[in-house]
Amino acid sequence: MTLAFDGTVIVPAADPDDGERTARGLIPHLTPTTTVVLVNVIEKGGGTPDKAPMDRRREYAEEIFERMRGVLEETDTAVETDVLLGTDIVERIFDEADERGADAVVFNPRKGNRLAELLTGDVARRMVKEASIPVVALPQQDS
């Protein structure tokens, strides 16, 4: 049995390579009734200086979306994009899912070592543990 998404799915991506891998992994699970909402969360400092200028970060999000749309254009799926701002990436993704009435959050876990996960807060692990709707981790694709 193959998993298929018939409604709205939120698909976060952190960088262009991550986005392209995720889009490729998503294709077998799409139907003509799927709406894919590609999101990139710009993490705000919450009172501290931002990591990079906002304009540059928005341009980077557009690079991510462009790569993902390039992969998804071969499908009949509706694709939307949204740059999200928030101090907590995971919370912001689920807030967006709630606002859009999404059926699931779908992502491709990035490879990383345990030390990097500990230092960064391991967004993927938190997405699964703090899920308010189903979360689907796509299988790793060979590049």
Rank of each mutant, 00 (worst) to 15 (best):
L84G: 04
A97W: 06
D55S: 06
E130H: 14
D18L: 02
E130V: 02
N113G: 13
E59S: 07
R67K: 13
E62V: 05
T120Y: 02
R126M: 12
I42Q: 15
D76L: 05
E59L: 03
N113Q: 01
N108G: 08
T87P: 05
E96Y: 08
M68L: 01
D15V: 01
A104H: 03
L72Q: 02
R57C: 00
V105Y: 11
P134K: 12
I89N: 03
N108I: 00
Q140R: 10
R69M: 11
N40M: 05
P53F: 01
S143G: 06
R126A: 14
V39A: 13
P53D: 15
E73S: 08
T22G: 11
A104Y: 03
N40K: 08
D142E: 12
I10D: 06
L119K: 04
G46N: 10
D18G: 08
L30E: 04
V123M: 09
A97R: 12
V106F: 08
A116N: 00
R125C: 03
V11E: 11
T35C: 11
L138H: 08
L84I: 05
I27E: 15
V41P: 06
I27F: 04
P16W: 11
E66L: 04
A137T: 12
D95Y: 02
D142H: 13
D76T: 02
A78Y: 01
P16C: 08
A78P: 00
L38Q: 14
L38P: 10
L138V: 09
F65Y: 05
H29Y: 11
G101V: 12
V128C: 10
P32D: 08
L38H: 10
T34F: 14
D55G: 02
T120W: 00
E96W: 02
I133F: 06
E63Y: 02
M127G: 02
D76N: 10
G121M: 10
L115I: 14
